[in-house]
Design a protein around this nucleic acid. Structure first.
Lengths: 147, 147
DNA sequence: ATCATTGCAAACTGTTTGCATCAAG
DNA sequence: CTTGATGCAAACAGTTTGCAATGAT
């Protein structure tokens, strides 16, 4: 958990002015633990009473991504999502409630996967892995519904 | 390789009228060996001198997907793509030329991946795996460019 | 003849851009 | 004061929908 002055310093260190929307964006993404879509972010800031414009939001999502402070990805439904977890990780995606959980995949497994590409003569730079399924909560709900 | 009457029979078997656009779509996807986007399909039919309207295209992509004759997926850039390969398979995606190659992942590996989700209490229904990198051709080009 | 399918045009969603205003250094 | 950031509005890309004309059974 970082306070706002640390966030501001991080932005400055990347040559970015620590404007209010940028600090809010980075702080929110680092704290929320989820993988929000642009519109979820928009709503979150509006709900906090500090709305930002959609143009500013998209501009900054791009700027922060380019600076390497956050990361963009596209989920299996094609929805853009943003993530402040910069480490190598992958996703568990609940097809019922939409929740996304970060998981770590053992090095050895990642190596075996890259090897599949190398076997075809490709130079693999990134292993994108998403496990779609039902989270523990939604499994329970399915049971209730079908009862 | 299937001829058009076989394609027509397949459509009828699913309760779909074998209209010209449907036959063309299914035949093309089965034959092309790539994973076209809607606009690539549109252009392909236009180039063949049998253009179809974009509304018809989207309607039929959905209808054929629902019938299980083709499958939709979203690549790591968020672009919709369609695939007539219905078996379990995964993708090698060239970040330079955009080419996508189907690969098979050994059962054992898929099992290990699903197990990661199960360890978190999730019920994994689908392992979505994309290996991003450079295909053999584009590796060569990178070398030339940087020379 | 009936009912599904086509295709135009208009609507919509998510995203980007131009530009005048505003704020940080 | 200078330069970069904001935010409105307009433009865009991809996709969906309403509806009259068309085509398959």
């Amino acid at each position: 958990m970082e306070d706002l002055s640390q966030i501001a310093r991080k932005l400055s260190a990347c040559g970015l002015r620590p404007s209010a929307p940028r600090k809010a964006l980075l702080a929110h993404l680092q704290a929320c633990g989820t993988h929000p879509t642009p519109y979820e972010l928009l709503d979150a800031f509006k709900a906090q009473g500090r709305p930002i414009s959609i143009a500013t939001l998209y501009q900054n999502l791009q700027v922060l991504s380019e600076a390497g402070l956050i990361r963009k990805f596209v989920d299996s439904e094609g929805t853009s999502r943003y993530d402040a977890n910069l480490g190598v990780h992958h996703h568990l995606h609940c097809t019922s409630c939409g929740r996304i959980l970060d998981i770590e995949v053992p090095e050895a497994l990642l190596g075996s996967l890259s090897a599949l590409g190398q076997a075809e003569g490709w130079q693999v730079s990134k292993v994108q892995l998403d496990l779609d399924g039902l989270c523990n909560q939604c499994q329970g709900q399915e049971t209730l519904e079908s009862a």
